[in-house]
């Protein structure tokens, strides 16, 4: 009885024996050597590891930016490795949000225009788009900064704009790649608090790559990568 409910409930993310090999022949480099990972809706996972451990490659695959060499990646039960490039783009558009270490905001473009970008690709009408963008910016604490361009904002503020852009379309999962990598401790903690709040209040699943222990401790679950494998996977006692 419990077994059947267990199997019928599809996890949000399920990796099975995922490998990733870059290059061919002699020059081949195995970035992932068989990853099994399940992430449920509402989780907050921190992926840790040294550089070259495969954590970024794993995030790229989870973010549907890259396909595994072998193994299976099911997102909401859909086999991602079999999707076309356009189908994966659509999947990102409707289910995923991205936050990067370098913010990746469009230069010379106001905060509100940056934030509403995903809505443009979704074809949301102008007025509605502005309203939503304004509201989202306010929710990350940037009310009144709508018409500032990235160069007029601090690093912390830029990352907030980036987070607003990532969540504006209401994604299931937020993929964060070293979101605090360019920020000082105080700013980093603010960003982590914001991510925790999004996870707690809006139920957004968060997968975050970081190499900072302090930041990882904000997550509910910490996965350690080493040499393309998962070294440890544990619930974080300190988590909120």
């Amino acid at each position: 009885m419990t077994a059947s409910t267990e199997t019928s409930r599809t996890p949000l993310i399920e990796l099975q024996g995922v490998t990733k090999v870059y290059g061919e022949g002699q020059a081949a480099m195995q970035a992932l050597a068989g990853i099994d990972l399940r992430i449920e809706q509402g989780d907050f996972v921190a992926i840790m590891g040294h550089s070259g451990s495969g954590k970024s490659t794993c995030l790229n695959i989870l973010g549907c930016l890259d396909s595994p060499t072998s193994g299976s990646y099911r997102f909401r039960g859909v086999e991602v490795s079999q999707l076309t490039r356009d189908q994966r783009a659509k999947l990102r558009r409707f289910y995923l949000g991205f936050v990067f270490q370098g913010y990746n905001l469009l230069k010379r473009t106001t905060a509100i225009e940056n934030v509403e970008l995903p809505l443009i690709y979704r074809g949301v009408p102008t007025r509605e788009r502005h309203q939503i963008a304004r509201r989202t910016l306010a929710s990350v604490g940037l009310e009144g900064w709508e018409s500032h361009s990235p160069s007029e904002l601090s690093g912390g503020q830029q990352q907030r704009v980036a987070i607003a852009r990532a969540i504006i379309a209401g994604p299931s999962v937020l993929m964060a790649d070293e979101p605090t990598g360019n920020l000082d401790t105080a700013r980093s903690e603010e960003i982590m608090d914001l991510l925790c709040r999004l996870n707690r209040e809006d139920g957004i699943t968060i997968v975050m790559v970081t190499h900072e222990q302090d930041m990882a401790h904000y997550a509910k679950r910490i996965v350690h990568f080493k040499d393309g494998r998962i070294e440890s996977d544990q619930q974080n006692g300190r988590a909120n």
């Binding site: 356009d86 783009a89 558009r93 991205f98 469009l106 995903p118 690709y121």
Partner: peptide, 16 residues
């Protein structure tokens, strides 16, 4: 290039 990468990550299609 980075901007294009961002757009693609956000879910822009190749033809878009």
């Amino acid at each position: 290039t980075r901007e294009i990468g961002t757009r693609l990550a956000i879910g822009a299609l190749e033809r878009e």
